[in-house]
Simulated scan of single mutants.
Amino acid sequence: MEFVTNYITPDIKLSCYEDKLFKTEVVFDQHMLVWFISGETKIIQADNEYIFRAGDIFLIPRNQLATVINYPKDGLPHKTVVMHLTTDRLRTFYAPIEVKPKAAISQKIRCFSDHPLLKSCFASVIPYFEVQEQFPENIASLKINEAISILRIIDSEIDGILANFEEPGKIDLVSFMEKNFMFNMPMEKFGYLTGRSLSTFNRDFRKHFNATPQKWLTQKRLELAYYQLTEKKKKPVEVYLEVGFEDLSHFSYAFKKQFGYTPTGLGSRAG
């Protein structure tokens, strides 16, 4: 089954998933504040890997590439409440606040465990999902502003993320792609994140790598998969999603085409 998502406002939702797993590769256009009710999520970024479980609360900053794999766990569905902290709302929130410039703040996921203030804020919206009645916009605004205010109390660096409204500028293409090739994103999104139009991205890519983006990406993903299988001793079913393939059969086909044998054939060759 697909995700069942219940929005009480466009910016507050409850997601529930009961199947084996759900995987997506995304760049969130807005900051996402998430409260985990049940299930488990693995989030893979270029430099970090996170596991979140029931009770965890975390913030995913906008414009960050991530592979998200969601699982039910212990007989319970994967269930979360999510607040979208939109740029428009944050501009309004910060308009009367003087934010002092700080050194560059890491855009990694920020974890808040089960902080009681954030947990209380999230728990207070649950009844609105249950009664299935119209959620007044003024109450929704109060709840989201409450969450932002709590974040500012418990995280001294959060203004450097939430009050930063800059869009991605033109950056070094080679270092970005070498760091983020495992994310199965549309080329338009890669272009946006490197500060380029699609046509400029494709032109610059061929200039630097002497190959088409898709051919180069497939090659890099297969090389990473080979490393994970041989050095990390992972199984093909553990690897294919993490290196940017959508299904196991396509991964096995591409792997055999590249290396001459299937991923499962590695064990017999090593022996």
Rank of each mutant, 00 (worst) to 15 (best):
F201E: 02
K257Y: 04
F205I: 04
V131T: 13
V34S: 01
H208Q: 13
M32L: 10
M1F: 11
A211R: 06
S175C: 09
H31Q: 03
E40Y: 04
I153A: 12
Q214L: 13
E157T: 15
I154A: 10
T41R: 00
K42G: 07
F28C: 05
F135K: 00
N210H: 13
F28H: 08
D11R: 09
F255V: 01
D204Y: 09
E188H: 08
R91S: 10
F28V: 09
C16L: 14
Q134W: 06
I154L: 06
D204E: 14
R110I: 06
D114W: 06
V174P: 09
E25Y: 03
I154Y: 08
D247E: 09
K143D: 10
W35Y: 14
F3I: 02
N210E: 13
L14C: 13
I57H: 03
L229D: 12
C121N: 15
R53C: 04
N6W: 12
T264S: 12
C111L: 09
I150A: 04
V34H: 00
V131H: 08
Y7A: 05
S38T: 03
L224N: 04
I139A: 05
E178L: 14
F255D: 00
K100Y: 08
L59M: 02
M32G: 07
I139V: 15
M32N: 03
F251N: 01
D47T: 12
F209V: 05
V99I: 11
E231L: 12
I37C: 07
S120T: 13
K100L: 14
C16H: 11
M187C: 12
Y128I: 10
D88I: 11
I8Q: 01
Y192W: 12
T80Q: 02
V27Y: 02
S124Y: 08
Y261W: 05
I154F: 11
M187S: 13
I171M: 12
L217I: 13
E2G: 14
T67P: 04
D47I: 04
T92H: 05
Q228E: 14
F183Y: 06
K179W: 07
V34M: 01
S113E: 12
K256M: 13
V4T: 15
G265C: 06
F58R: 01
I69R: 00
T212K: 07
L224V: 07
Q107W: 04
M185V: 06
R152W: 06
M187F: 15
P96H: 04
L85S: 02
Y50M: 00
Y50F: 05
F52P: 03
A95M: 09
V243C: 01
N6G: 09
E231S: 14
F28M: 07
F122L: 03
Y192E: 12
T5D: 10
P72Q: 04
D204Q: 09
R269N: 10
G55I: 11
P213Y: 07
G271D: 06
H31M: 00
L266D: 06
L217H: 07
V26D: 00
Q107V: 05
L90H: 05
I150G: 05
E223H: 06
R221M: 11
A95H: 12
T87M: 05
G271I: 15
T200S: 11
C111V: 15
D56I: 11
E98N: 09
E18W: 10
C16T: 15
K234F: 10
T87I: 13
Q107Y: 05
N48H: 03
